[in-house]
Every structure is written in structure tokens, then in C-alpha cells.
Write a protein that binds this DNA or RNA. Structure first.
Lengths: 109, 109
DNA sequence: GTCACTACTCAGCGCTACTATGTACCAGTA
DNA sequence: TACTGGTACATAGTAGCGCTGAGTAGTGAC
């Protein structure tokens, strides 16, 4: 992956995953393949699982273990109230940054 | 500063500074105050200087030392050809990410 | 029986922003 | 003279996040 993208994903990847989880419980492998289908082709599996561990530890998601038809049992993550609040803050932060950058790109400065 | 913002700035702060430098040579202190005026009120001085050292080492900017009317001499940074190329790549990367996030925010997923 | 896909885990690394502190020059002022 | 405050740069140490690379395990097809 490009170094620029790697750095830029810091902080945003978490928001992307939380946004995906909104009203759409999912498990790690599913999230990884979805990310890749969205163009984040080089996201490492390890990255996603580490992120999931983190947001679980931070209490932003609820976890449920379900058997899988194929392979080991899945850990299904769903956004809880704290997660929704956190996601809202994320959008606020993102909105500010995106606005600043957009005006930098168009106005020149 | 908010933790979310701190993480999100990783990768983007560099682009912001390079964009500011486009056709607009500036020195560290000036860049810091400009960033603060743009709403990045909590950017630490040390962060900016470290970033400037980095982009200089990576050959993205040219540096010229100029005496100041007030205080120690200034190090004036200006974007060079490599910097412009790097900035272009930055906008491409940013554009992709912004597009993905925007569609996540509006479409829901 | 081995290949491919599914599914999760973990140790170690590199990069970037923050914290905290220090140096130094100059102007105003009490 | 001493002190305060604004200007200007520098750096050592810390924390957080994504990546690398490797490993474990269950299932089904050939």
C-alpha cells in the first residue's frame, strides 16, 4: 500500500469500519472482504482484527459468537450506543478536516 | 486536542502544509500561526518543526535562511519540483479517501 | 491428502503527532 | 537594570495506529 494511504488511514479506518457496522452487524473476515471490494485492496487482515479488538476493548461494539457453515466460529460485531456517539464525533471531526482540505485544494490556500 | 483529530491528522497534516507552501514560501512560526488561524488551534509548535525537518530531509522543499526583524533568523521553506509531485499524489490519495467516506456518510453504507 | 477458502490471533516494526522543555533574539517598560 | 512577552527554532521521549509475517484451525472439493 502507498505510504501516504497508510498514514491517512490512521484514525479514518476506524470510522470507516464503525460506519459500515451501523445497522449492519458483521464479522472480521466479512469486513475485510468488504473493505477490499471498496477499493482498499491492500488492507491487511491483521489490521482489521486488531482494529476490532481495539474498538471492542473501548466498548464501542457488542460481540456475539456464532457458528459458521464454513470454518471456525465467527465473532459478529454490532455498534452499540457508545459506538454511535463515537461515530457521530468522528463525522464531526472528519467534516471539519474535509472542509479545510477541500478549500485548500480549490482556493489554492 | 481530540484523540480522533490527532490520529486523523497523521498523513494529512503534511499535505496541508505542502499545499500551503504552494507558491507561498513560509517559515515555521508563520505556518504554525496560520494553522491555528485555520481552526487547528491545538497544533503544537514542535509538531510543525518536526514535520518541516522531515519534508526537508525527504527533499520536498528548498530552504533559505533569512534574517528576521524580530527574533532569530527564519528558515523559509518553499515547495520544489519533488514536493509538487508529492503533493499531487497526496491529492489523489486524499480524493479517493474523501470520496469513499462521503458515500459512506450519505448512503449509510 | 492436499489444496483452497474461511476465520481468527499475535509479536514486532515504522511512522507521525504530541508533550515538555530548552535556546535565543528583540522591544517595551518599570 | 531586570523583567516580561512576543518571535523563532530545536529535540528527546511517548503513544497510537496500521503493516508485516507468521501461525492455528475448521470446512469442503478434487
Amino acid at each position: 500500500m502507498g505510504k501516504q494511504m497508510t498514514e491517512m488511514l490512521k484514525g479514518t479506518l476506524e470510522g470507516i469500519v464503525l460506519a459500515f457496522l451501523t445497522g449492519n452487524p458483521a464479522y472480521g473476515y466479512e469486513i475485510t472482504t468488504w473493505l477490499r471490494s471498496q477499493g482498499f485492496t491492500d488492507i491487511a487482515e491483521g489490521t482489521v482484527y486488531a482494529l476490532l479488538v481495539r474498538i471492542e476493548k473501548n466498548g464501542l461494539v457488542d460481540v456475539e459468537k456464532r457458528p459458521s457453515e464454513k470454518g471456525p466460529p465467527r465473532k459478529v460485531y454490532s455498534l452499540n450506543a457508545d459506538g454511535e456517539k463515537y461515530l457521530e464525533e468522528f463525522w464531526t471531526t472528519w467534516g471539519f478536516l474535509a472542509e479545510r482540505l477541500e478549500s485548500l485544494r480549490t482556493e489554492g490556500k
